[in-house]
């Protein structure tokens, strides 16, 4: 929508292009361990951006996005079982993705209609419960095979190692999430959602179709998360209810967003990078400390920099500009 956002500057385009070139070159120079870390940052950074499509704009914080992550993975897994062995893996993956998106779309609409009537913490709790219920259902009813799980065929592309291949798939996934976020933020939908985040009743009064906008954001966010679930499961080569319906996935998406800056595009990715490097490299040998450190970081961020690192930098920059203006006025 015109008038709300400055056009993307050539500096921003340049920086993005540079980062992209770096990201594309990385798999040819990095070690497999480094590459696996980078994979996680791309995938979970992308998921955190997808979470922000709803939570970042509207402040409807879903504590149960693992529901869609798992739903997508199970949809793809169950479909894969129905396909005969003659269907090639790449086609299986594509069909699985499409089926997962369709199933998640339907499920997201069905869940959103009652759940989006709740606000704040009630919405968060309802989503948390939804994710737990899906996990239990997949384990309890044998048709879903949640407890045994599925083995997924290995996707091969000549010339690329598996770790490189999935690195690129996750990179594409992240870019799709970023693209959607940027386009949405600059659209009428994004402006309306931002207003909903600041004051939903006022937004409705000014003519923003709040119900329709919230539903749209919820569904897009859910479908993207499902795509992430399918890609993740294929990268593992197997899946059970316990690998996808994980509460730590739901919570980490929020954590990454909070560390980097909720409602920004770079924030969730920076947050994902920091937390993944911190827990897996710095504390790589101290596995018992992960949760402790994660908790400490969360508490520190909420009290010291509630708008995340990006918000912190912005505030500092604004303060510096204001003091310069005042000094200029004084002299």
């Amino acid at each position: 929508m015109r008038g709300f956002h400055k056009p993307i500057s050539s500096r921003q385009w340049g920086l993005s292009a540079l980062l992209l070139v770096g990201a594309v070159a990385l798999p040819f120079v990095a070690s497999p361990f480094e590459l696996r870390l980078a994979q996680q940052i791309l995938l979970f950074g992308g998921l955190a951006v997808a979470w922000n499509l709803l939570g970042g704009f509207t402040t409807y914080w879903s504590f149960g996005h693992a529901a869609f992550f798992g739903l997508g993975a199970f949809a793809a897994g169950l479909l894969g079982q129905q396909l005969g062995p003659e269907v090639p893996v790449a086609l299986r993956l594509v069909l699985g993705l499409l089926f997962a998106m369709a199933v998640t779309l339907a499920a997201a609409v069905a869940v959103a209609l009652p759940v989006l009537r709740l606000r704040g913490i009630y919405f968060a709790i309802a989503m948390l419960a939804f994710a737990q219920i899906l996990g239990e259902v997949s384990k309890t009813f044998d048709v879903f095979q949640g407890a045994i799980g599925f083995t997924l065929p290995i996707l091969k592309v000549p010339g690329l190692a598996k770790v490189q291949l999935f690195y690129f798939l996750f990179l594409v996934f992240l870019m799709v999430c970023i693209g959607l976020f940027v386009v949405m933020r600059r659209s009428r939908l994004g402006v309306g959602l931002t207003c909903i985040g600041q004051d939903e009743d006022t937004a409705a009064m000014l003519g923003v179709p709040t119900e329709r906008y919230k539903l749209t954001a919820f569904v897009i966010s859910a479908v993207l998360t499902a795509v992430g679930g399918v890609l993740y499961s294929y990268s593992l080569g197997f899946m059970t209810a316990d690998t996808v319906f994980r509460i730590d996935i739901s919570l980490n998406l929020i954590l990454y967003s909070m560390v980097g800056g909720i409602g920004t595009v770079a924030g969730p990715i920076i947050g994902a990078a920091i937390m993944i490097l911190l827990t897996q490299v710095v504390l790589g040998d101290l596995l018992d400390l992960h949760m402790l450190v994660t908790g400490a970081v969360l508490v520190a961020m909420v009290t010291l920099a509630p708008k995340g690192l990006i918000g912190l930098v912005r505030d500092m920059r604004r303060r510096r500009e204001e003091t310069t203006v005042e000094e200029g006025a004084a002299s």
């Binding site: 709300f4 309306g192 000014l206 003519g207 923003v208």
Partner: peptide, 12 residues
Amino acid sequence: QENVLVAASFGR
């Protein structure tokens, strides 16, 4: 300005 612009854009 943005506050007013929202009303203008979503209103009649």
